[in-house]
C-alpha cells in the first residue's frame, strides 16, 4: 500500500511540475463542448442525453491522452525499468497510476463538467447525484485504459492502437455513465444511483483484474 501511495505521489508531483497531461485533457474536453454546440446546434446540445454522452466520450479520450502522457514520461526518463525492478514494483506501478490518474481526471471532469453545465446551460436537477455518478464514472475509466496502454507499450502505432483496444472495452462504462449523468440532470434519483452503483462495480472488477494480470504484462 505504501508503494502504491509513493508511485501515486510521484506521479502527481511530476504532473504538477509539468502539467501537460492535465492541460491537454482539459483543453480537449473544452474544445469538444464548444464543438458540440456549434455542430449540432444549441437546442440539441442542451439535451441531457446528448450532452452527457459527449461529455463521457470526451472524458474517455481524455483518459487515454493523460495515461499515454504519463507512460511517455516514464519512458522518456528511463524510469519504468527501475520502477518495475523494485520488489512489488509492478503492482505498485498499476495501483499508483490508477490512484494518480483518477485524481487528475476528477479535476479534468470537474472543469469539463462545469464548462458543459455553464456553456450549454444544462438543467441540473440533482447536483449531488451527478457528483456521485461523475466520481464513480471517473474511477471506472483508468484501470481499463492503463491495462491497454501497458499492453501497447513501446509498440509502433501505439497512439492508434490504444483507443482501438480501450474504447470497445469501455462501452459498458460509457453507457452507464451517460445514463447516470443524464438521469441526474433530469431529476431521476433512482436511475442516477443505480447507474452509479454499476459504475462502482465496473471500477472494482477492472481494478482487481488489473492488479491480477498487469504484473504479467509489464516487461
Amino acid at each position: 500500500m505504501n508503494r502504491i501511495a509513493l508511485v501515486a505521489a510521484r506521479e502527481l508531483r511530476a504532473e504538477r511540475r509539468q502539467p501537460d497531461g492535465i492541460v491537454a485533457a482539459t483543453t480537449f474536453i473544452a474544445v469538444l463542448v464548444l464543438l458540440e454546440s456549434l455542430v449540432v446546434g444549441p437546442v440539441i446540445a442542451r439535451d441531457a442525453d446528448v450532452a452527457a454522452a459527449l461529455f463521457w466520450i470526451a472524458l474517455a479520450f481524455a483518459t487515454i491522452l493523460t495515461t499515454m502522457r504519463s507512460f511517455d514520461r516514464e519512458l522518456e526518463d528511463d524510469a519504468l525499468d527501475a520502477l518495475v525492478a523494485l520488489p512489488g514494483g509492478r503492482d505498485a506501478l498499476f495501483g499508483g497510476k490508477v490512484l494518480a490518474l483518477t485524481a487528475m481526471l476528477l479535476l479534468v471532469a470537474a472543469v469539463g463538467g462545469i464548462l458543459s453545465l455553464v456553456l450549454l446551460d444544462l438543467p441540473l436537477a440533482l447536483p449531488i447525484h451527478l457528483a456521485i455518478v461523475v466520481l464513480f464514472g471517473v474511477v471506472a475509466l483508468p484501470p481499463v485504459v492503463i491495462v491497454d496502454v501497458i499492453l501497447a507499450l513501446r509498440l509502433r502505432a501505439r497512439a492508434a492502437l490504444v483507443p482501438i483496444l480501450a474504447l470497445p472495452v469501455l462501452v459498458p462504462q460509457l453507457v452507464a455513465a451517460t445514463r447516470g449523468a443524464s438521469a441526474a440532470l433530469v431529476g431521476d434519483d433512482v436511475g442516477a444511483l443505480s447507474w452509479a452503483g454499476l459504475l462502482f462495480a465496473f471500477a472494482v472488477v477492472y481494478a482487481v483484474l488489473g492488479l491480477t494480470i498487469v504484473p504479467a504484462a509489464i516487461e
Binding site: 491495462v147 509498440l155 483496444l165 494480470i213 504479467a216 504484462a217 516487461e219
Partner: peptide
C-alpha cells in the same frame, strides 16, 4: 492488430494472452 504490431515473440504472446483473457 496488437499481435501484428509486436515484433518479439515472447512479448507478443504475453500481451495478446492478457488481452485474450480480458
Amino acid at each position: 492488430l496488437l499481435r501484428g504490431l509486436s515484433t518479439d515473440f515472447q512479448r507478443r504472446a504475453t500481451r495478446a494472452a492478457i488481452l485474450g483473457v480480458i
